[in-house]
Amino acid sequence: MTFTKTLAATFAALSLTVGAAVAQDFPTKPIELVVPYGAGGLTDAFARGVAQAAEEELGQKIVVVNRPGGGATIGLTSVFAAEPDGYTVAFTTSSPLVIQPLYGKTAYKTTDFQPILRLYDIPVAINVQRDSELQGYEDWLEWVKANPGEFTYGTSGGTGSGGHIATEQLGKVLDVDIRHIPFEGSAALAAAVMGGQIKGSNQLPNIHRDGEIRPLFFMSPSRPTDAVYDSVPTVAELGIDAEVVFFSGIIAHKDVPADRISILNDAFRAAMDAPNVQELFERDQIMPDPAGPEAFAEIIAAASKSNETTMREIGLIE
């Protein structure tokens, strides 16, 4: 029958020209943006914000799906397991991508994903209580050197979390003896700093809203947007080789065709400038810092390598 023949021919043609054809045909159905955290957090808010804005760019619905659990690895596992057609992508933070796979228990490796767009880094600092006599980096270093093992710092994620690894690396680079105290959540951590149970913390400071967590120096490349932090140095400015990048961005399975990645990159990049997303950046004191697939890939590779070295040194992995 001619109809069947035509159909077969069409299919043949389609399969031949798949690379070229999809470029224009993508996306033709809703895209799933997996958030490996529960609804309601910072990452979720940004994912929903950019999804909404990127819908207009792509002309397709973007469904945000929360898949929390397993230290955010369940969400990434589901993206890794999905068809690599670009219709399932993840909005991830650094931990499930460049820390968790190093423990060797996840179904995926860091290199099983390819980056689409890095949106921002979360600024983190080494902080002390607001009224502490330690005014800045030099004060701190002097005190820490004079009191080995006395500087207790908390992290909000506990042993093996990004904050812990980064601060241990700092200790190694500066050759000082500081002691890690694990906490769960930044509120409990801030409370312990305020109450004097611990000397300091590795987290986002809060003196911009009259809080008591005062930064000595930032370990991230960027600072929060509030002017109160402008005079606080970063480790890069201090010449310390312990910079840490807690990135957040969108990634996809490594086998997704490059042209689809570039379509998604364009859409999400444009979405970052949408008013609703800009509002989020402002609210959460975060500097927008877009990085395309190549630049983001370098960031991921560098972070993974540096984490692996430190984790080996402090005995988290063999």
Partner: peptide, 20 residues
């Protein structure tokens, strides 16, 4: 779940669903 103090999974039976 994952133990905050050592970062080790505990009594999870290998299921990621109970890591937290």
């Amino acid at each position: 779940g994952i133990d905050l103090f050592t970062g080790m999974p505990r009594l999870t039976g290998g299921y990621f669903e109970v890591y937290e």
